[in-house]
Design a protein around this nucleic acid. Structure first.
Lengths: 374, 374
DNA sequence: CTGAAAGCGCTTACAG
DNA sequence: CTGAAAGCGCTTACAG
């Protein structure tokens, strides 16, 4: 009480007096205690409400006052306490990142992209790995959102594809951004990767190389991107006078093991494919494995294409031709969209929220052998 | 005011009256507002302080009272607001995870291990990737710790090796746990990986296979683990009557590229080594690359051993023999140590905080050719 | 443009 | 074993 009343009642003292009076306190503050809005108010000779206005960039502060307060803030190294701020604002300044994705590089990159955008705006990121096959999946997330009072959440595939989750978040009035491979929601709620359209680049690349017996190991049916990549690839081949016959399409699981198993089936076909488009890089690594075990040389005997451009792609021998996604940028964009929505500001445009994966040609692709064209 | 005073002043009403009186409010709460400690207090017909005691498991509550309050808490689905709790406790219930480590799988695993332990105790994890080469490195972290009022931080290598950072945290009175490959601090502050001792397993393995010309690509001198792995490996070879000659030891950077470059040098030696212990899996992948380009078959022409057992290790062809670390467990242990320290409880013992990497033998290791023993 | 009061949802003293 | 008051550090709504 004494300290407090001293601060508030005697505010009329001159600025220099205030300095003197508070010198020892300021010193103690520097050493033991973070400066609070009250310290700033006292030293700047204004009310804490005015300090609050300066912090929150209210236009209703005289410039001179603003400068004076800003100077004290800087001198003290004051930053508002996020918890107190959150409590008073009835907002948490916290965003969630919810994922159930085994690809560590993907998650880390999204996370760092989002973190980069959030940090400078004073938001925190609450990371929430989860298990979408668990019966508590939805209730866990409901708990997370309500307990932590999340201001918004970023959903990564495959849970971003779950409409019941999106509905739940909507009912909780929790803004969300879904990182998705197809426009399954309003663009406002999306960071979109145009997997379908981009798969055309793979088709074009293989056709250019002269392949005609082309196979694909699709991702699991439960992933939307599986369908997108397959549909786009198939259509693009057809448009080029080729086709993706049923015996050359197998459903994998986006995993190393499934890639190996599916490749084993494909390479037993007669005639066998001369090129395999794997659903992702993990699957492609599985194809490498089977080729290695069966003595097929890549790319001489077999061309392999992946998707993701994960670190793995460049570490395989031969290095893997694959589709590159700007994952970090997608994470940053997702965070920016969320913050813009919360602040009721425009934010990234639809086109800035749409990403087109691009082909990175490496060593795993080459012309078919024996050459078709003599 | 009206709502509040009604709640506090009329607390003497019977439990059923309280129920009736608050029914509409309770309903509204369910729909629009999270229940607060006041709602619980009113319905349980106790003061909020008593509710607080129940939440915090104070022994000074009569069992009957505790049960009544607990029932209401359950019925309402009440959970304390972390921000309000943090503000009042003068604690944030937040731990930091600070890293500057390019290995995504490593970071994700530590993170998920830590998250698993923290979540059930109501702690959050603030993830903070950083750049230790930046001039603001230390001040950034100081800002992070003070602004977020972190209750503790987990430091991953290589920044866990930075004594000035540890000193800074100590001066900020911020408990920390360093994930380290050597006991550079009191065990209380450590989750320890015994890299030096574990490297003996690699030596033993190579000796068993019959190798005599053995090389190592060490990690960068700026990583403590580099020295540990090198020292342990070298000593173990010596103990077995072999040696690690200077021309067979090169400093790499723990990266794919450096692994390839160092392998190129080593494989140009005459005689060349028949086995290379790479500092980590990334480096080993670089060795694979050079072997691939120069036409060396692994393991027939060259045995390669890695360290980490990252996902990459099993995806390479041939699969990579490497040292496995229980990274997730290490993350969990780090979080548990931190929470125990904050709560002033025992926590994981020194031996539970010490992890011994173990050899996983895969396809990349075999006897040398031409065989030494005829 | 500025401030005094009340409140966010919890806890810490301090009483009983 | 239990509670009334004051406080954590900020903001909202209301005045001027």
């Amino acid at each position: 009480m004494p300290k407090k009343s001293a601060a508030t009642t005697h505010r009329v003292v001159s600025s220099s007096e205030a300095h003197q009076a508070s010198a020892p306190i300021a010193h103690a503050a520097k050493m033991e205690r973070r400066p609070t809005i009250n310290d700033v108010a006292r030293l700047a000779n204004v009310s804490k409400k005015t300090v609050s206005r300066v912090i929150n960039e209210s236009p209703f502060v005289r410039e001179e006052t603003r400068n004076r307060v800003a100077a004290v803030i800087k001198q003290l190294g004051f930053t508002p306490d996020p918890q107190a701020r959150g409590l008073a604002f009835r907002r948490s300044f916290r965003m969630g990142l919810i994922y159930d994705n085994p690809n560590a590089a993907y998650v880390i990159n999204i996370q760092e992209g989002a973190l980069g955008a959030l940090r400078k705006s004073g938001y925190e990121l609450v990371v929430h790995p989860c298990d979408r096959t668990s019966p508590e999946f939805l209730s866990d997330i409901e708990q997370l959102v309500t307990r932590q009072k999340l201001d918004g959440v970023i959903l990564l595939p495959p849970i971003s594809e779950d409409d019941s989750l999106a509905a739940l978040l909507k009912s909780l009035k929790c803004p969300y951004v879904r990182v998705l491979s197809a426009p399954l929601d309003e663009i406002e709620n999306l960071v979109l990767s145009r997997d379908r359209e981009s798969a055309e680049q793979v088709a074009e690349h293989l056709v250019q190389l002269g392949h005609t017996r082309i196979a694909m190991i699709a991702g699991p049916a439960s992933y939307r991107s599986s369908h997108e990549r397959l549909a786009g690839f198939s259509r693009a081949l057809t448009e080029r006078g080729l086709s993706l016959p049923p015996e050359f399409v197998i459903e994998g699981q986006y995993t190393f093991e499934s890639g190996a198993a599916c490749a084993d089936v494909l390479l037993s076909r007669n005639p066998r494919p001369t090129a395999i488009f794997a659903g992702n890089d993990e699957t492609a690594a599985g194809v490498y494995r089977t080729a290695y075990l069966r003595g097929f040389k890549i790319p001489d005997d077999l061309t392999v294409i992946g998707f993701d451009d994960s670190p793995l792609a460049s570490r395989l021998c031969p290095s893997l031709t694959t589709m590159h996604q700007p994952i970090r940028d997608m994470g940053r964009t997702a965070a920016e969209k969320l913050m813009a929505r919360v602040a009721n500001l425009p934010g990234p445009t639809p086109s800035a929220s749409t990403f087109m994966p691009r082909l990175v040609v490496r060593e795993s692709s080459g012309p078919p052998k024996p050459p078709r064209v003599t």
